[in-house]
Design a protein around this nucleic acid. Sequence first.
DNA 1: CTCGATGCAAAATTTTTGCAGTCCC
DNA 2: GGGACTGCAAAAATTTTGCATCGAG
Lengths: 160, 160
Amino acid sequence: MATSESESGDIRDTFKDFLASKSLRVTNQRLAIFDAAYGHSDHFTAEDLLEQAREIDSSVSRATVYRALPILTESGLIREVDVGRDYKFYMANKNATTFQAQVICLDCDKIFEIDAPFMEWYGKTVAGKLGLQVESQRLQVSARCPKDAQSPCMLKGKSA
Amino acid sequence: MATSESESGDIRDTFKDFLASKSLRVTNQRLAIFDAAYGHSDHFTAEDLLEQAREIDSSVSRATVYRALPILTESGLIREVDVGRDYKFYMANKNATTFQAQVICLDCDKIFEIDAPFMEWYGKTVAGKLGLQVESQRLQVSARCPKDAQSPCMLKGKSA
DNA sequence: CTCGATGCAAAATTTTTGCAGTCCC
DNA sequence: GGGACTGCAAAAATTTTGCATCGAG
């Protein structure tokens, strides 16, 4: 149904395989939600996802989106990004190789993902000292555009 | 009303001074909420705070707690700790000198604050590279107790 | 055919807000 | 005494859940 089947076809198969491996059923709604998630190149909310999934399959309900999100997260195909707002953000895990930190601009209200590969090392170091096993890490920097700058938030996917 | 007036009396005055400086009124409810916050040595939720504040002044309402929390946070006397659960945690800022990271144990469901002074340097460095002004930072590590350890979560206020 | 999955709507949960009365300054 | 503050309860807003029905395997 999508414009280009081949673009994300193999990743879609990965999702199907994951569902099969967990004895979960491959339904049209789950595929629509998956396609909607991978149609986004940025962060999105559960409500965003519902809206986009409904454009693919109008029968998708809010409950199904909320029930699909943990599955997609557990599969590693999407990532949960909680920056402390009322609602959570999600994003497709298209090229997730290194640890990502979030820079949240309080002026632009946007969230930028930046590579922070050193965090991997840091997490292991701290974990080793405390005798704990790291499960996950979050590094978030809230910042403001310089008021005198001509173009706010000129940062993109830069690495730190 | 408290057991030891002298223990936190001076900090209480700091709170009163802050209220005065902002042209906010010093009410019994606000003082009760403040005392309740500083009676805790650990993290607490808004609901916890309401309960404890009511033991000091039974007239304190939930709405007033929620209205006081931003004031206390802005004053720097308490700190907001959002670890991605439904509700937020807070804690009295008794000895806040360096940056604090949170280690959340997924087994014990507890939150530990550890000093992470290097983060201050890191934040400034990244901010400088991107031309942004850092407002605040969050570093959170989710971890698990080693299953074969005899006593889980033996970490305390250790420094990293 | 069987049981997991879905949609709908109501519930749950945390936080916010409108309003009339209260009390600090 | 005036206006900020408060309590109460209803409202908001996001996420969860119960139940009858639907459909994947």
